[in-house]
Design a protein around this nucleic acid. Structure first.
Length: 290
DNA sequence: AGTTGTCAAGCTAGT
DNA sequence: ACTAGCTTGACAACT
């Protein structure tokens, strides 16, 4: 069981998500920000390895505007060696990597322009993982998307558009249950049709479920992961007290986490802590599972 | 040096 | 009708 956190490390003083305004797009800006982002990513991975945090999500902004029409810079070629060397490090340390396109990526949208942009974004993210030469267990997780007032049709659109994706994207794409539209049961239904693995988000499941026990939920999600996919990925969080339902906790609640792990530990899985203080909570979590 | 409005992009539920 | 929240932070123009 690997423990990890997403995108940002708050204690080493660099960010792998440096960007710029679209209006100041230039080759020079691309080169300098990507150099910064990749070098910071290396530092983060070094920190993670030292602290036995072997699961990490690379942020969508690692290559700014990579999927935007404005981007005419061949970042894939320019940074080929850097990607390969980071990938080597990841493999040597036996780390697991994921990516998570943001909320604008919707492959079940009704508007074909949104789909087109979304597909480009997925292709960019899979390219990053390919350039690192990571195997299929490095995943790209998305939500099913919008409901558009007709869930069945929207699920059908998701499935159809999924089938049209390139093999490179398909081999990495996984879906995650969300907290307001598509619960675990919906995701499992989609899995049945197209065999796409299902990431289990524990907090979303708390917010929206079909009455399954936590244990059953974890077990059924785990079954959707094939041999090449690696073990089940879990996103873990808990409710921030006094905030509205669905707000992620600022810091880990050790008691709640211990209770959760008790249910999860009989299943082979990797757990990512989607908690606002990032590696701080992940470190605590890692110490709690031993 | 520090503060603040704004940033490529969408959807949903709560106010 | 508006906005918080989503993985949410960072840029850039202003004091």
């Amino acid at each position: 069981m690997k423990i990890g956190y997403p995108c940002i490390n708050t204690s080493i003083g660099c960010t792998a998500n440096k960007t710029f305004r679209l209006s100041s797009y230039s080759r020079q800006n691309m080169v300098s920000k990507i150099e910064n982002n990749l070098s910071c990513l290396k530092k983060i991975l070094g920190y993670n390895s030292k602290n036995n945090l072997l699961f990490f999500r690379i942020g969508s902004g690692i290559i700014p505007f990579a999927s935007h029409t404005v981007c005419d810079f061949k970042w894939q070629d320019h940074f080929k060696k850097d990607f390969a060397s980071i990938g080597n490090y990841i493999k040597k340390q036996d780390m697991r990597i994921s990516m998570h396109p943001d909320q604008f990526v919707l492959i079940n949208a009704k508007n074909s322009e949104i789909i087109k942009r979304s597909v480009k974004e997925l292709e960019y993210q899979s390219r990053v993982l390919d350039l690192m030469k990571l195997k299929e267990k490095a995943k790209i997780q998305i939500h099913v998307g919008g409901v558009y007032k007709d869930k069945e049709k929207s699920i059908q659109r998701f499935i159809e558009n999924c089938k049209k994706l390139t093999g490179d994207v398909k081999k990495r794409l996984v879906i995650e249950n969300d907290d307001r539209s598509y619960n675990l049961r919906d995701c499992l239904k989609i899995h049945k049709k197209i065999k796409i693995p299902v990431v289990f988000d524990s907090f979303h499941h708390e917010c929206l479920n079909a009455g399954e026990s936590l244990k059953d939920a974890i077990t059924s999600a785990a079954k959707t992961w094939g041999k090449k996919d690696g073990c089940l990925m879990i996103d873990y969080s808990s409710q921030e007290p006094m905030k509205r339902k669905g707000t992620h906790a600022k810091t880990i609640n050790p008691e709640l986490f211990k209770k959760f792990v008790k249910q999860a530990k009989t299943t082979d899985c990797d757990i990512m802590l989607e908690i606002k203080d990032k590696e701080k909570s992940a470190l605590k979590a890692a110490s709690l599972i031993i």
